[in-house]
């Protein structure tokens, strides 16, 4: 699964990440290959779910799109503008069209500021996009995220539950009227009942604010619920990209199948996960040659070690980076 290649990219995309590479320096002058040649795109109004386990590079990909992590190589374009070329003020200006929401809602809010000031931050920096009065806009957004009420703004983050803090984070992100939201495990720290509230809220806000969403999560059931299209990642590479229902109905990459088969209590037609995946995750400092999944794949052959598979179509809008997709 090495998953380079860009056969799955579409013409009319709003946001495109092409051949993204992000490397960090590791201990003893080694290089950590966090993301290695990953391409994906989002059409306006679409939700792309990005799934994979720890170390697959999903979070780093999201941060690289935001330019919070500057990619080692590759490009990110938004409406045709290359974000990867921008610096300083130009970058700050371009970046406000995208906003990011993080896993830990409590750590995402500055404990020493009032909610009102936290949510207002974007307008303080850039001015009001609509020209409407600032406090009206704040009220409207707080209402939209389900935190309407008089005294909410005056309080500080520690007075709110995890779910409410995540709503505040969403409000803060929406203030600048962003085109793209990048959500990094936004419900993983929340209880199931609260998680459902936030997922429903996100679906509602997507319509209301015409958002394009990159939804990063390790939870396959959550990703299925919110996504139009899903990308499966493993060890810094793309394994499979397809429409959500197609991918869950017919997972084709061996790793996608192993992931789905590992979900506790699932009722999918798959063999036990123990037959689909073995061994341990290799180190991103020294990833396997060829297909990075080959060391754990039951179908691996000599070719998998020498030649990196490229994403190719196995059905309409269903792309897989595997030399032996037919054998599964």
């Amino acid at each position: 699964m090495a998953g380079t290649g860009d056969a799955h990219l579409r013409e009319d995309a709003h946001l495109v990440a092409r051949d993204l590479v992000v490397e960090f320096s590791g201990p003893n002058k080694t290089v950590v290959h966090a993301v290695s040649g990953v391409s994906f795109d989002l059409i306006a109004g679409e939700t792309l779910g990005v799934v994979g386990e720890s170390g697959c590079g999903k979070t780093t990909s999201g941060r690289a799109v935001m330019q919070l992590e500057r990619p080692t190589s590759g490009e990110v374009t938004l409406r045709g503008q290359r974000l990867t070329d921008l610096q300083g003020t130009d970058l700050r200006r371009a970046r406000r069209a995208m906003q990011m929401i993080f896993q830990d809602p409590i750590s995402s809010l500055n404990p020493s500021r009032r909610v009102k000031d936290i949510v207002r931050e974007g307008i303080e920096i850039w001015g009001d996009p609509d020209g409407a009065s600032t406090s009206d806009r704040i009220d409207e957004i707080m209402e939209a995220v389900g935190l309407g009420g008089d005294d909410v703004g005056e309080r500080r983050p520690h007075e709110f539950s995890g779910g409410q803090c995540q709503r505040i984070c969403i409000a803060r992100a929406l203030v600048l009227d962003p085109e793209v939201l990048i959500l990094d495990e936004p419900v993983s720290a929340l209880d199931v009942s609260v998680q459902a509230q936030i997922l429903n809220l996100l679906d509602k806000l997507k319509e209301q604010f015409q958002l394009t969403i990159m939804f990063i999560s390790h939870d396959l059931a959550v990703v299925k619920n919110v996504s139009d299209r899903v990308m499966v990642m493993y060890l810094g590479k793309v394994c499979e990209v397809a429409g959500t229902d197609a991918l869950y109905a017919k997972p084709t990459h061996p790793y996608s199948r192993a992931l789905l088969a590992s979900i506790p209590g699932h009722e999918l037609d798959l063999p036990p996960a123990s037959e689909l995946i073995s061994g341990e995750l290799p180190s991103p400092i020294d990833p396997p040659s060829g297909c990075r999944f080959r060391t754990r794949c039951p179908h691996a052959t000599a070719k998998c070690a020498t030649e990196e598979p490229v994403l190719r179509a196995v059905a309409e809008d269903h792309y897989v980076a595997c030399h032996h997709p037919g054998s599964v």
């Binding site: 459902a196 509230q197 059931a221 959550v222 299925k224 139009d228 869950y248 979900i263 009722e267």
Partner: peptide
């Protein structure tokens, strides 16, 4: 009901506990 169900199509509305 508030757990996302793999057997339901994407974007199915989840039952929440308010």
């Amino acid at each position: 009901n508030s757990m996302p169900d793999l057997n339901l199509p994407s974007h199915s509305e989840l039952t929440t506990i308010e």
